Simulated scan of single mutants.
Amino acid sequence: MKPSIIFMVFLILITISSCNDETILPKPKAMLRLEYERPSAQSIETDYFRFDSNKEAVVNQKSSRSIILEYPEMKATIFMSYRKVDDDIKNLISDAQKLSYEHAAKADGIRPRAYEDDLSKVYGAFFEVRGDAASQAQFYVTDSLNHFVTGSLYFKTRPNYDSIYPAAVYLQQDMGRIMESLRWK
């Protein structure tokens, strides 16, 4: 009988100790949180225009008409190119818009936003691309008479929008700063 009493006491203790309000749930999968420092600006000049860029960007000026801003930490690059307007502003704008919408096949959506700065005579559009497209953002700016600049953001990795989203948003803001600070010479 002693073993049965010990067994009953053991069973009662287990029952009492297991009756609490805590429920054990599996932990959710952890997600990597990417945060970037607030950008500080540096001024970049070419023969045709100047603008403010993020100091984190490595500036590679291929020529007076071509600038590459590389962000090594994010494995991203913003390619900028200048064209002189020669009575072909409609073609230049059409080509820039066409280039942005070529990513529509892979993109979940493209959100265009017009940009106007009458005081500095800078007009253009910014295209935010959502989804697994090759380029996450593009822009063009012009004074409508003499100057035309395009910019495109590319990552040096396979486009997985969920993974590159924080970096894409950060760099889209940099591209916005470029557009807002751009001045013609």
Rank of each mutant, 00 (worst) to 15 (best):
R183V: 02
K121P: 02
Y36P: 03
E128T: 05
E116L: 06
K29G: 08
V59K: 05
S120W: 03
P26L: 13
Q172H: 06
P28F: 06
I6M: 13
V122F: 05
F79K: 09
S18C: 09
F10C: 14
V141N: 01
I44V: 15
H103A: 09
T15W: 13
S100D: 06
S163E: 15
V122G: 03
L34Q: 07
Y161F: 13
R183H: 07
P159T: 08
G131L: 01
R177D: 06
T77Q: 12
G124K: 03
V85F: 07
S152W: 01
K121V: 02
I6L: 15
T77A: 11
D52F: 04
A137E: 00
I14H: 11
I16C: 10
F7A: 15
A167G: 12
K156G: 11
R177F: 04
Y165M: 14
P112D: 04
E45N: 10
V9S: 09
K90A: 09
L119C: 04
N60S: 10
I67T: 15
S4I: 10
R50N: 12
A134K: 11
T157Y: 03
C19I: 11
M175D: 01
P166Q: 12
G176N: 09
I12D: 06
A137P: 06
A104S: 14
N60A: 11
A105W: 05
S18D: 08
A105M: 11
D88L: 06
F127I: 00
P39M: 10
A104H: 10
L13N: 09
L34C: 08
E180Q: 14
A133M: 03
L99M: 13
V169F: 03
M175L: 11
D174P: 00
R33T: 08
N146C: 09
E180V: 00
I67K: 02
I93V: 14
S43W: 04
Y71Q: 07
N91F: 06
I89L: 12
F7H: 11
R183Y: 01
V59L: 13
D108G: 14
L145V: 14
L34P: 01
G131K: 08
V9Y: 09
Q173T: 11
S181Q: 10
N146F: 13
S53I: 07
F148C: 05
S163V: 12
R111G: 04
L25I: 12
P3Y: 12
D86N: 14
V122S: 06
R33K: 11
T23F: 09
F155P: 00
T142K: 05
Y101T: 04
S18V: 05
V85T: 08
Y140I: 01
T157S: 13
F127T: 02
D95R: 12
D21V: 08
W184N: 06
A104Y: 10
